[in-house]
Design a protein around this nucleic acid. Structure first.
Lengths: 340, 340
DNA sequence: TCACGAAATGTGAACGGTCACAATCGCTGT
DNA sequence: ACAGCGATTGTGACCGTTCACATTTCGTGA
């Protein structure tokens, strides 16, 4: 009884309409849950949709609505646990909200690469951008290209007008620092993240603030690149002086590298050197010794991120989303009182 | 001299046409590099495009061309290093080929979740799908939904009709196993990956093949879940028997967990137990001791994956892309001759 | 000088949805 | 029985691009 359709072309809203004996607009209304559709009509349309395996064409929808329902993620080092977790959480949250996510990776952090990545995102008419990358540079490029898409970062920038979540990374860093001080350490070194990552800066600031508050003298942190390799080499370098009893690393990978260097030098953790990381990657409890670190709730971060971004797109007050996410110190075997 | 444009709306191809004094179709031809456009005309159009900051509307393009230029990635455990690296590489390669990538994460591996993720991808009219997930189940769902989009996996399935790359994971696993056998180990245990991951199965098969070829008796592998936690618990369990001198783990994270368990038991690596991993994650050289493992070229994997998928979409012969990627054994400190 | 074919450009109709507005239906109260 | 009104449905245009086809322009040889 059902009429045949032209083959070779996906069924359209009008095909559905014809078979259901209604107008195409009625089908559209069913698809969009318009309130005033008679139940019987709705049922009939839905049945035809099912029969035909009909799926609305996203391009057509985006075109006529003038909205892409897509958000972009600008990511650097997307293979690392922290960023990757955030991205996964962002995708999940976006999907739940009916949005699509498109990721552009930075191949390097120079302006050209950032421009290319942003360009790629803009070509898809993304409605918003999440920046998980050296934010400072990205902002510069964003401004320079005078791109007017709302964007969001995972960490407050301190700029007057920023749309950012407030994971209290400063607080997390202070927790870590305070833990070391409470154990009795006075000569504490900080291995920070790359210069133009806001997260790195926040953690460094937390470290310096806590050291200042507790009246412990500090030396200038080294700026790393988040990798275990860097941690290892920085550790070797530092150990030539050995004028510290504890190191606070800006992430767990670098902490792992430092541990490697410390063992290479024939020293014991935590007896000779205590080490604290940041992130609590799933491997951290299995390091040797298990790593004391600061746990971030990446999934919550991703969800909040999307909430904020979609809120911003909808024109909500960003302050609505400002409730900070409080990180948590996880104490394991890599920290202890100094031996001397 | 330049005319003003209606504000509040992005410039369209017709706006460009009007300002350049040509027809909209000519602009379209310039955008698509049509051969028969006079150079002077082309230059004029390009200049207006530049002036207006014009960007073609992707939705309109997709609609009229009937192609989305988007490929989907179906991913599980996307926060882990291996999958995350592949995904990043896939994105880069796709971008280079002018494609967009959309990722859907599986929240769990049950049929419902897989269906939801595939649905999300299909809604965007993806032209192809890359599966980085428990492939067996995904295939079942794909068939059940009678989805006719080409798909690709990172590892050959052995099915008659599969479109898959051929990283020779079997070879990689044999390398690892052979290394242990050559060192003198005879009681070797294998900690495999989850049952329905093809990679896991291939590595397991490689292990069993090599053991068989060298006439070394084997016991049944344990199936793990890729996490360090699982490795730790499996390690504890295994050590209660302690009827082995070496373990080959299906990935580096599980190997890390095993190392933790071995140390907990007061044993030495590699003297009492040798351990080999798989993947060579960036942290592996900094484990204690540094992990012997099998390196995979994830970036190349991603590139090939896109080449194969786009080739399939274009109707090329899949065999064209079959040249295998050969993994490499990286020997570090976690393996040595058995002590007894 | 003019016909002729290729190169260059223009014209109008898709593509598959949504939007604004118009029309019809069905119930209520008088 | 009928006006009035909200609920329900229909009509045609439009979003910005590409496609198929028509038209104009240009260079060339007879």
């Amino acid at each position: 009884m059902t009429a045949e359709l032209p083959t070779g072309r996906a069924p359209s809203i009008r095909d559905v309409a014809r078979l259901a004996g209604v107008s195409h607009q009625t089908v559209s209304r069913v698809l969009n849950n318009h309130p005033s559709i008679r139940d019987s009509t709705k049922a009939r349309v839905l049945q035809v949709i099912e029969e035909l395996q009909y799926r609305p064409n996203r391009a057509a929808r985006a075109l006529s609505r003038g909205r892409s329902r897509t958000i972009g993620v600008l990511s650097a080092s997307g293979a690392q646990y922290g960023p990757a977790s955030s991205i996964a959480a962002i995708q999940d949250a976006a999907r739940e909200a009916g949005y699509y996510v498109n990721t552009a990776n930075l191949t390097s952090v120079d302006t050209v690469s950032i421009e290319a990545a942003l360009d790629h995102l803009m070509y898809q008419s993304v409605e918003g951008i999440v920046v998980i990358a050296p934010q400072v540079r990205v902002f510069d490029v964003l401004e320079q290209l005078s791109i007017e898409v709302p964007y969001v970062t995972l960490q407050s920038t301190g700029r007057p007008n920023d749309h950012a979540l407030s994971v209290d990374q400063i607080h997390g860093a202070r927790l870590a620092t305070r833990h070391l001080i409470d154990l009795g350490h006075r000569r504490i070194f900080h291995l920070a993240g790359p210069q133009d990552w806001i997260e790195a800066e926040a953690r460094m600031r937390g470290f310096l603030e806590e050291m200042g508050a507790m009246d412990v003298p500090t030396t200038a942190p080294i700026l790393g690149d988040w990798t275990a390799d860097f941690g290892y080499h920085a550790g070797r370098e530092l150990l030539r002086q050995r004028d510290f009893t504890a190191i606070f690393s800006s992430n767990d990978q670098m902490a792992l590298g430092i541990m490697h260097a410390v063992r290479d030098a024939g020293l014991d953790i935590p007896r000779d050197v205590s080490i604290v990381g940041f992130d609590d990657i799933p491997e951290a409890p299995h390091f040797w010794p298990p790593l004391t670190t600061v746990r971030q709730d990446f999934a919550e971060l991703g969800r909040r991120c999307i909430a904020l971004l979609l809120g911003t797109i909808a024109g909500d007050d960003p302050d609505k989303f400002r409730a900070p996410i409080i990180p948590e110190l996880i104490v394991r075997g890599s920290t202890g009182p100094p031996a001397f």
